[in-house]
Write a protein that binds this DNA or RNA. Structure first.
Lengths: 210, 210
DNA sequence: ATACTTCTGTAACTATTGTTACTGCGTAGG
DNA sequence: CCTACGCAGTAACAATAGTTACAGAAGTAT
């Protein structure tokens, strides 16, 4: 565990901070599909992702959902940080996209470390920065792109974070992430297949040339 | 100027920090419609808004645009902060919605003050937090709401920040902010008038009961 | 093998939004 | 006063996305 942490965060955090993290943090290993956070949940800790991918989703009252972005190793959830300062309720849902290892740090330490460690301050600022830009791209794609373009972007990004040209999802699951409907996604995927950009199979699809 | 600054920020910043801001900051007074920042601009300073309202817009390559949110007095632009840490290029466009007073602080001071003043750290974190949530609501409205609902939300928010039930804009201007077209907005506004929620006039409209 | 479930393909239809085109009103400037 | 321009109203149409319904293919369980 310490080795994993050091491998991922050793370059940006000083020895002393790493030791503190090890002392107060709780190590967590979760399987693919594990729900790490639900909207409205009370937030007790802040996750530092060591390996794997977490997907962050936004839901509305009617059960509609939308993929915001993926967290990858070395990332943390800015939403969580944001929540620590506000009413401490989560605004988002977090699901393990792959098996993942992470360390949960109690939120009380955040404030303390922010004063004490410059590297921690930079890390937190940088996370905010990255997340803000990530949210902006998500917004761009919803506001300015049509569904076919969004779908292509989604498949590419998914392949990238999973390092796999095969997307192991049903059309329904993709539809949920893009806040669309299964029929629409099937229709567009079929078009992409006809253009020989992907190859469709049952329960998965293979990216050929997007 | 010092009075204005103290009135707005005196409660959250200690005396010493206020003095520093006065020393290194440059006071700026801009008229309604003034363009404070353009996409791709190099960012030299960070604005602290003292009075007035600034609207923050996102553009894409094709000239399409979309209102992200309003900055009000006591706010700063998190995007700017985010940019200070990244490639220093603006991702957004900022236009004065009303006449506005602000102080520009050189970005070099940010880092210094973050180490030195706890109140500054809190201010910066809090700004990020507020902006992140603001972006999330914007995203919600685009992803989950239909145009009629978005239009109502837009009119309400605009009336709120301007403290005026009369919206002094043409349908075309509203259409730009919502990334829609003039005809669509005219259509929907007419419906709202028929429902007696607003009253339409040339170049402006009055909110009755939204 | 049979029955059952899940996933995908497709057609027909609806809803929403965007586009084009044309009208007339109101105001500003000559 | 008259003209020109910007703004708003409206109709007709197009494009995109979402919905309903159903059929068949591919797995899974009995």
């Amino acid at each position: 565990m310490i080795q994993d942490l050091k491998a991922e965060y050793g370059k940006i955090f000083e020895e002393e901070l790493i030791n503190e993290i090890v002392q107060v943090g709780t190590f967590k290993e979760v399987p693919e599909g594990y729900k790490l956070m639900e909207i409205g949940d009370f937030i007790r800790g802040m996750p530092l992702l060591i390996s794997g991918v977490i997907k962050i989703l936004r839901d509305d009252e009617d059960g509609d959902e939308l993929l915001l972005y993926y967290l990858e190793k070395g990332n943390t959830c800015s939403m969580t940080m944001a929540c620590c300062m506000g009413d401490a309720k989560s605004e988002i849902r977090a699901i393990a996209e792959t098996d993942a290892k992470l360390i949960m740090v109690p939120i009380q330490k955040m404030e303390e470390w922010t004063t004490k460690y410059k590297s921690w301050r930079n890390f937190v600022f940088n996370s905010y920065h990255v997340r803000l830009n990530e949210l902006l791209s998500t917004l761009d794609s919803i506001a300015f792109q049509k569904m076919d373009e969004r779908l292509i972007g989604y498949l590419k990004e998914k392949a990238r974070v999973n390092q796999d040209d095969i997307i192991h999802n049903t059309h329904q699951e993709i539809a949920y992430d893009l806040h669309s409907s299964r029929v629409v996604i099937s229709r567009l995927l079929k078009k992409l297949e006809q253009m020989e950009k992907i190859k469709l199979h049952r329960n998965y699809l293979k990216i050929l040339d997007l």
